[in-house]
Nucleic acid binder design. Structure first.
Lengths: 346, 346
DNA sequence: CGGGAGACGGAGAGCGCTCTATACGGTGTC
DNA sequence: GACACCGTATAGAGCGCTCTCCGTCTCCCG
C-alpha cells in the first residue's frame, strides 16, 4: 500500500499557512497575497497534493459529475444489458452524442457516467444514483418516445435534460431537431431534381422523430402533386434499410427517389438498389438523414439531411449545467434546424 | 429548491434508534435485531432516505466508481476529442467493451465513467481523477501499443487493468487474446478448404494485435508450402479494407483466400471482390476477425475468428475489482483463446 | 497622528457517514 | 449472589474539505 495521500492540512503545514488559505488558493478564490499563493503552490507541488473530491462534495453538495443515460425499449425482457449496450453503440448516433457531451465537459474536467436504462429496475437505479448525489444531473437519450424515465425524473425534481421532446408533456428541458422540416428539405430536393415517383424508407413509427420526418416529407410531396406516397417501415439498421427498399422495389418498381429516415438505412437502400440493377442517383435518387460518418464514407457519398447531433448534445449539457447551478429554474427547449447536404446520391 | 434530503440522523430519529444502528441496517451488517431492522426499514421507506455517497466515500475511502479510459493515437494534435470519441464508437469493438464492463458492473450498482485520453494533458487528467479518489481504478483500452498511460498509472501505483498487453513491460494486469493463434486458425481453415493463393488484409502494423494476427497466419501458411504471402495493410475501417483488397487484387489477381484482420475490413474486401466480379466464397474465400455484429449482419455472413470481447472486458473489471479491494496485489494476465466461426464467406 | 476602511489570514464549525470503543441488559456458571 | 460473557445498541471521534466569521495588519485621509 502507498502511504496516506497528503491532505490540505499537510500542505498548510508545509507552506506554513492555515488550511483555509490553501483551500482558497486551490479554489482560486480572491484575497490571497500573490507571494503566499506562490508559497502554497510550491507546497502543493512538493507534497503532490490532490484535493479529496468526496470531502469537497460532502460540503459543496455537488458531485461535479453528470450521468449520460441511454434508454432502451422499455419492455423486451429478453434483451440483456450487454446486447443493448452493444446495439446502442452500433449506431453512430450515440457516438456523436458522447462526442458532443465530452466536448462540453472536458474543459471543465468533468466526465460522464454512462448508464443504460431499459427495465423499471434500471430506471430506479438511475433515480437512486442521482438522489445519492453521485451525479448532479442526467442527460437522457431515449430510443422510444414513451419512455417512463423522464416523468420519474421530473417527479423527483432531479435536474435532467432530454434529447428529443417527450411524448407526454413533461416539465423537463429538452433539445430537439425540427424533423418535419428535415422531411420537407428532402422532398424539395428530390422534387427539384425532377423526381416523379417518390417513396420513403421510414424509421420505426413508434419513434416520434420518424413520424415527423415522414410527415414533413409526405406533406411536401402531397402539396406538389404526389398525394400518394409508398412507404416501408425500417428499424434504423442497415439490414432493415435493405429489406424495406427491397419491398418498395417489389411493389413499385418505378420509384425514382427515396427518402430514408437515417443514413444507415439509406446505405442499405443504395446497396439493394445497385443489386437490383438500378443506378444511384441516375435511376433512383437517395437521400439519407443524420449526416453521420457513414454518409461520407459510403460510396457514393450520401446526400443527406444533417442533424447537428454533437451541437445538440453540447447544448443539452449546457442547459443541464444551468439547471444544476440554479441559474435556470424553468424547463426550456432548444430546437435545431436540419440542413440539406448534397453529395452524390441525390 | 426541494427540501433538504433526509440523513441518517433523520431516519434514526424516525425509527427511534441511533445513527449507528441505521447505518448497520443500510449496510447489511450483522448484529441487528430483526424487529429493529424492520422498524428501520420502514423509517427509511417513510423518509425516502438515500445515503449520501460523498459522506460514505469520505470515510470508506472508496468512490465505488471505475473509469473506462479509451486511449487514442497519442500525438495527432489536429484531432479533436469530439472526432476521436465519434471515431472510437464507430468501431463496434468499443460497444462490446462497454457491454462487457457494464455487464459486470450493473449487478453491483456501479457505472463506468467514460474518459478519452489522447494528449498528455488528457493523461494527466486521468491520473488526477484517480488520485482525487473520484474513481477507484481504471480500465484502459489503448488503440496503440506505445501508449504512455499504462506506465504513468503503474508509476503512480494506481489500480488499473489493460486491454491487451502493453508494448513495454509494465507492472499492470491485463487481459488479451492469443492473436497469433487466431491467425493460425484462419490459415488452417483456408488451407482445409483447398486455398492455393492466400493473402492477407492486415491491420495497422503499429498495433501489436495486427502484427500477431498476421504472424500467426503467415507462419502457418509458410509451414504449409506458402512461403510468400501477399499482404496489404489496412486501418481497421471499411474503406481501408476496400482499398487494401483492391490493391491485393491488382497485384495478385489470382488470390483465392483472404484473411482480413477484422470484420469491417473483411466486409470491405467482400464488397470490392464482388465489384470486381469475384464470387465469395466460390472464387475467393474471406475470413474476418472479431465476430462483431457486422459479421452476422453482413451478406453473406462472414466466416470469422471470434474474439470474446465482452467476456474479456468483464474479466478486466473483475481483476480491477480485486486490485481495488486488495484481494490481489500482484499484476496478473488472462489470455483468451480465439475461436473459428464458420459461416458463409469461407 | 488617530481612526476607519479595506485587504487578508486563521479558527472552527460543520457536511453525513462509518466504525471503534463502550454501555447495557440478560443469561449461564460456579 | 457475584462474576464472566455474549449479543446488541449507543456515543462519539473523526474522514478532508469549505466557508463564515472574526481578528489583524496596512494604508490613507481628515
Amino acid at each position: 500500500m502507498s502511504k496516506q495521500a497528503p491532505t490540505l492540512e499537510d500542505v498548510a503545514r508545509e507552506a506554513g499557512v492555515s488550511r483555509a488559505t490553501v483551500s482558497r488558493v486551490v479554489n482560486g478564490v480572491r484575497n490571497v497575497d500573490p507571494a503566499i499563493q506562490q508559497l502554497v503552490r510550491q507546497a502543493i507541488e512538493r507534497t503532490g497534493y490532490a484535493p479529496n473530491r468526496a470531502a469537497r462534495a460532502l460540503v459543496t453538495r455537488r458531485a461535479e459529475t453528470i450521468a449520460l443515460v441511454v434508454c432502451g425499449a422499455g419492455d423486451p425482457p429478453h434483451d440483456t444489458h450487454e446486447a443493448f449496450a452493444a446495439r446502442a453503440f452500433a449506431d453512430p448516433f450515440f457516438g456523436r452524442v458522447v462526442s458532443g457531451v465530452v466536448g462540453f465537459l472536458r474543459p471543465r474536467s468533468m466526465h460522464p457516467v454512462l448508464m443504460f436504462a431499459e427495465s423499471a429496475e434500471d430506471r430506479h437505479e438511475v433515480l437512486t444514483y442521482l438522489r445519492q448525489g453521485r451525479a448532479d444531473g442526467a442527460l437522457v437519450v431515449s430510443t422510444h418516445a414513451d419512455d417512463p424515465l423522464p416523468a420519474l425524473l421530473a417527479e423527483a425534481n432531479l435536474p435532467a435534460v432530454l434529447f428529443a421532446r417527450p411524448a407526454r408533456p413533461t416539465p423537463l428541458s429538452y433539445v430537439d431537431l425540427d424533423h418535419r422540416d428535415g422531411g420537407r428539405l428532402a422532398a424539395e430536393h428530390l422534387l427539384a431534381r425532377g423526381c416523379r415517383r417518390p417513396a420513403s424508407v421510414a424509421g420505426p413509427l413508434a419513434v416520434t422523430a420518424s413520424q415527423e420526418r415522414l410527415a414533413g416529407f409526405r406533406d411536401t410531396m402531397a402539396r406538389n402533386g404526389h398525394p400518394y406516397l409508398p412507404v416501408a417501415e425500417g428499424g434504423f439498421t442497415l439490414d432493415s434499410g435493405v429489406a424495406a427498399m427491397g419491398q418498395l422495389l417489389d411493389e413499385h418498381p418505378d420509384v425514382d427517389g427515396v427518402f430514408a429516415a437515417n443514413d444507415l438505412m439509406a446505405q442499405g437502400a443504395c446497396q439493394i438498389l445497385r443489386e437490383r440493377g438500378r443506378r444511384v442517383p441516375d435511376d433512383v435518387a437517395v437521400i439519407g438523414f443524420d449526416d453521420s460518418g457513414i454518409a461520407l464514407s459510403c460510396r457514393p457519398p450520401l446526400t443527406t439531411i444533417r442533424q447537428p447531433v454533437e451541437q445538440m448534445a453540447a447544448e443539452m449539457v449546457r442547459i443541464l449545467d444551468e439547471h444544476i447551478t440554479g441559474e435556470r429554474l424553468e424547463p426550456t427547449c432548444v430546437v435545431f434546424d436540419p440542413e440539406l447536404i448534397v453529395r452524390e446520391t441525390a
